[in-house]
């Protein structure tokens, strides 16, 4: 190519020169679409900021989140040294919030890894193989769907014991059925398409067709769905924390913080409100990003 070609031209080319070039170029075009969506960029910005806060928590937090100062309990907002005040044991709420991002991210990452993958496996196998396999897998899915989510999660945690890992497991176990449904529906349409017929005519087996041909098309809609569900997952984790079945004190998990603050909500509203606002902000950020990703990842939009 000519020397004068700019990086932008190289990225936007219609004639990629290598496998890597084609991948990077496709990625860049998706990024441009996402970037033109202001709301999605705000969502992404909040999440990137949150990642940064979690990574640099020890540097950012003004106090140790576990150190109690009983002489300075329930200090109001903006008090000297405590921007968001202190809680019932005199711990700095801002510091606890900052450390809490780590827990929130941990929960979100784990659930986002487990639930969609289980759903994808169940849904695509069920949709592609059909017959008895489909009937059995889908009835199991229906059973899980029939329970109210939080109640089922409560039952799991009660059986497994309270704690953050078990909370994650319980949420994941209740979150996968919708993903299975989505992937199955997509698989059914993809299965009868000509490009699947074409690869069958090359002698490809079911395993290859599912993993290499059906998964790439299902994953994009799952990613969108996961980002949109993130808000619900954070809230469910917070709910379990609130009920005392998730993260255990003194862990600065946001839901547990609200639970603690509940007792003083009339006289000292900020103790519960500030972590509530944090949950709200992060949930909103995931929703905004999910909406933007839907535009980018929809295969039809690329045409």
């Amino acid at each position: 190519m000519s020397e004068t070609q700019t990086l932008r031209q190289w990225l936007l080319t219609e004639t990629p020169t290598s496998r890597r070039h084609a991948k990077i170029s496709a990625f860049y075009k998706g990024w441009l679409t996402l970037r033109s969506n202001t709301m999605a960029m705000i969502g992404l910005g909040i999440l990137v900021a949150m990642l940064f806060v979690a990574a640099a928590a020890p540097l950012l937090a003004p106090y140790d989140p576990f150190v109690q100062d009983l002489g300075n309990r329930l200090a109001p907002l903006g008090v000297e040294g405590h921007v968001f005040g202190t809680d019932s044991l005199g711990r700095d709420i801002l510091s606890r919030l900052i450390y809490g991002t780590r827990i929130t991210l941990y929960i979100v990452a784990l659930v986002a890894l487990i639930a969609p993958i289980v759903g994808l496996l169940v849904g695509t196998v069920s949709g592609y193989v059909g017959g008895w396999t489909d009937a059995i897998l889908m009835r199991i899915t229906d059973i899980f769907l029939a329970f109210p989510r939080l109640v089922l999660a409560l039952a799991f945690v009660a059986a497994l014991g309270a704690g953050i890992e078990n909370a994650v497991l319980a949420i994941s176990l209740t979150a996968w059925p919708p993903y299975a449904r989505i992937s199955r529906a997509e698989t059914l349409t993809i299965r009868s398409s000509d490009y699947i017929s074409a690869i069958k005519l090359q002698g490809a087996g079911a395993l290859r067709i599912i993993t290499k041909h059906i998964w790439p098309l299902c994953i994009s809609s799952l990613i969108v769905r996961v980002t949109l569900d993130m808000a619900g997952i954070i809230l469910a984790a917070a709910g379990l924390g609130f009920l005392g079945l998730g993260a255990q004190p003194p862990s600065p998990e946001w839901g547990a913080m609200i639970s603690e603050g509940r007792r003083f909500i009339l006289d000292h509203w900020w103790v519960a409100t500030v972590p509530g606002l944090a949950i709200f902000t992060v949930s909103l950020a995931f929703n905004l990003l999910g909406d933007g990703l839907r535009d980018v990842l929809d295969p039809k939009a690329g045409e």
Binding site: R19, A22, S193, D194, Y195, S197, A198, I199, L201, Q202, G203, A204, R208, K212, H213, P216, L217, P299, G302
Partner: peptide
């Protein structure tokens, strides 16, 4: 076999290289 609709017979997420390479590999 060559299919009727070339818009439906190629995997939308696979490059030409992937399509032919996979066929040859199989």
């Amino acid at each position: 076999m060559v299919f009727q609709d070339p818009y439906a017979s190629l995997h939308p997420r696979h490059s030409v290289d992937q399509v032919l390479g996979e066929t040859l590999h199989l």
